[in-house]
């Protein structure tokens, strides 16, 4: 049974914590919005995108979702605005303030 992490906020009492601080389940970090860390975000210009997917593996934050061999819009809930994808795009389909 996966743990319900909504009950494990920082105000949780000691009885509510999971035994041994183990978390049954996976990928619960999606509930933590690292996108709040920065205001600069990459912008996706879909018209220029050739769906080469070269931006996908360079993202340290798994913020470029791929479905049916095509990339989707940025996951701004988690994107920290590092700018690596801007440089990885050969077609100028990603821009970001301050990244040339």
């Amino acid at each position: 049974m996966a743990a319900d992490i909504s009950k494990l906020g920082v105000k949780a009492g000691w009885k509510d914590l999971t035994e041994g601080m183990m978390i049954a389940g996976a990928g619960t970090s999606k509930e933590f919005n690292t996108g709040e860390w920065s205001t600069d975000k990459p912008e996706f210009i879909e018209d220029k995108c050739k769906q080469c997917l070269l931006c996908v593996p360079v993202c340290p934050d798994s913020c470029i979702p791929v479905e049916d061999m095509k990339r989707g819009v940025f996951d701004y809930k988690h994107c920290k605005g590092c700018g690596i994808c801007v440089k990885a795009c050969p077609f100028g389909a990603i821009t970001m303030e301050g990244v040339k």
């Binding site: 860390w37 997917l53 798994s62 996951d75 988690h78």
Partner: peptide, 26 residues
Amino acid sequence: ETMNKPERLAPGHRMCAGCGGTIAVR
């Protein structure tokens, strides 16, 4: 096809912006 595989490292981790470590892991 490799990029189309399901992601096995979820977003929401707290590595620095631009970290090479998680690029390696993914």
